[in-house]
Design a protein around this nucleic acid. Structure first.
Length: 279
DNA sequence: AGCCAGGAGACCC
DNA sequence: GGGTCTCATGGC
């Protein structure tokens, strides 16, 4: 059992904001599967202390929850206007999570044109069939070779639709070394993005999610349907958008406008829009 | 029934 | 660089 103390951290916002898909809250306690361990965690509202029941070491969670990020200076850097200010004041303490690259890749391949409950369900079914049962009803995330050799009938049981073949193809490419995930850490944002986008099913948005959530690329600015609507509504009249507001251009704008921590800004805008809609 | 969900890819101009 | 259509699936 670990106890983590951090001034600027909200466990609920961090696990609920739609970046991770293997956590669920029952009562005050979150339960999730992380690195093959069933983890339970909750936060003391009075003290802010985070309690974690896991066999994984304390240092793992300090890294997982990005306690090394100076949230104060990050929020200050992206707090450019009244819209961002509102998102920040509403969800202060939401931190990005350092995800496992392989799990993040597959998760966001599944995320294409799916709602978050569907994504969570798809990942659960994938884990139930191709992962290992590590506790009653809990399954580890499937390893690359397990998905690479998946047969049609097993994979189709997951009902992933057009995502089915993309998952298996990506697994094959990871297994045969066609794409080296560890190597992506060494590349800069643009080069890593280009490499990821060679995979079938990885476009700009999915690549940005993977780079932001798993590869330390804080300058990634994923433009999904929510963020697109937010930017169109609040920032569409800016000179930069004369001549059109494609998703590509919105991404360029996000990086330019919010600066090097635009990935954090994006996640606050995304979370606020998802919960509150447009105002 | 029709629309939307953390889109991508092929095809068009 | 823009638009438009299709690709499964599930929930509302």
């Amino acid at each position: 059992m670990h106890t983590l103390q951090c001034d600027d951290f909200n466990l609920d916002y961090t696990l609920d904001c739609g970046q991770v898909f293997r956590w669920d809250k029952v009562g005050d306690v979150w339960t999730g599967v992380v690195r093959g361990d069933v983890v339970r965690t909750w936060q003391d509202i009075q003290t802010g202390a985070v309690h974690i029941d896991s066999i994984l070491p304390k240092d793992f969670f300090l890294n997982y929850f990005r306690f090394d990020d100076d949230l104060n200076s990050i929020m200050e850097a992206v707090n450019k206007d009244k819209y961002m200010a509102e998102a920040i004041s509403g969800y202060r303490g939401m931190r990005l999570i350092r995800q496992d690259p392989w799990e993040c890749l597959i998760s966001y391949l599944l995320a294409t044109a799916w709602s978050i409950p569907n994504i969570k369900n798809g990942i659960f079914k994938l884990s139930r069939i191709f992962g290992e049962e590590i506790a009653d009803g809990y399954y580890s995330f499937p390893k690359p070779d397990s998905l690479a050799i998946a047969c049609d009938s097993d994979l189709c049981d997951c009902r992933l639709g057009f995502r089915t073949n993309r998952i298996r193809k990506a697994a094959v490419q990871v297994v045969n070394g066609d794409i080296d995930l560890a190597e992506l850490f060494e590349l800069d944002y643009e080069a890593a993005k280009k490499k990821l986008m060679t995979l079938d099913g990885v476009g700009e948005k999915v690549a940005d999610c993977i780079l932001l959530f798993a590869f330390e690329k804080m300058e990634a600015f994923p433009v999904d349907t929510h963020v697109e609507k937010v930017i169109r509504t609040y920032y569409g009249n800016q000179d930069f958008f004369k001549g059109g507001m494609s998703k590509t251009k919105i991404g360029m704008w996000g990086r330019m406008y919010f600066g090097k921590y635009c990935g954090y800004a994006q996640q606050y805008l995304f979370y606020q829009k998802r919960l509150e809609g447009l105002k």
